[in-house]
């Protein structure tokens, strides 16, 4: 394999290590920013939850618990797969790394399909954001529209991040297959993987908030 290619750093960096360090720190700072982005809407959710405990319990109880839980397992598995792929690429096993990234992408796609199935189910029941739909003519609990609006807001934003993550992983996969990424440039895959893990971590918190309790 051609993994022994020595990469030259960009001209404003002294070494490739410095460049990789900068890229890694940059990604972490970006993730910190993402945490606060999701944090804002989660803080709003929590505040409404404290305000309307009963309505939010009703909302959680009505949610598609099984589908949401399966999705959690899907994302956890995908995270494990992409972590293994980084490990494989570092060890020079490019083919294995490629397969594992492909598996991650497949699992991510499954996640989105299940998510859309859930949305379809909600729409069928007459649950739309903003308290619109026939569901809310039967269920009046004050605060219930806020639960579902926030549900759509939070999962929608998360699904958007999943889509972005899938795009990034897709680009990385094609570069692995074209042998443009190897052991020496494994940090590029690592950055994509870190982003994917963040998407996973956010879902780890959305799951109990929206589906469990």
């Amino acid at each position: 394999m051609s993994d022994t290619t020595v990469l030259a750093p960009q001209e404003h960096f002294a070494t490739i290590e410095q460049q990789a360090h900068a890229a890694r720190l940059g990604m972490w700072v970006f993730l910190a920013s993402e945490v606060l982005l999701f944090g804002a809407i989660i803080a709003l959710f929590t505040s409404y939850q404290v305000h309307y405990p009963d309505a939010f319990r009703q909302g959680v109880d009505h949610n598609t618990k099984l589908l949401g839980s399966i999705n959690t397992g899907v994302l956890l598995t995908s995270s494990t797969a992409v972590a293994c792929s980084v490990h494989a690429l570092r060890a020079g096993k490019r083919r294995l790394a490629g397969l594992l990234v492909a598996a991650t992408i497949a699992l991510g796609a499954v996640f989105l399909v299940i998510k859309l199935t859930e949305y379809a189910k909600h729409f069928h029941e007459g649950i739309y954001p903003g308290g619109a739909g026939s569901f809310f003519q039967v269920h009046h609990a004050r605060g219930l529209p806020e639960f579902w609006t926030l549900y759509f807001g939070m999962t929608g934003l998360h699904a958007l991040h999943v889509t972005i993550g899938l795009t990034v992983l897709g680009v990385l996969l094609s570069r692995i297959m074209r042998a443009e990424l190897g052991a020496a440039s494994a940090h590029r895959l690592e950055l994509g993987a870190i982003y994917w893990h963040l998407v996973d971590v956010i879902w780890i918190f959305l799951w109990p908030l929206l589906y469990l309790a």
Binding site: L76, S79, A83, E190, A193, I194, H197, V201, F205
Partner: peptide
């Protein structure tokens, strides 16, 4: 606990 595991091990 899960998030800490992902952050420490997966995200290194």
């Amino acid at each position: 606990v899960k998030a800490v595991l992902v952050a420490l091990v997966f995200m290194e």
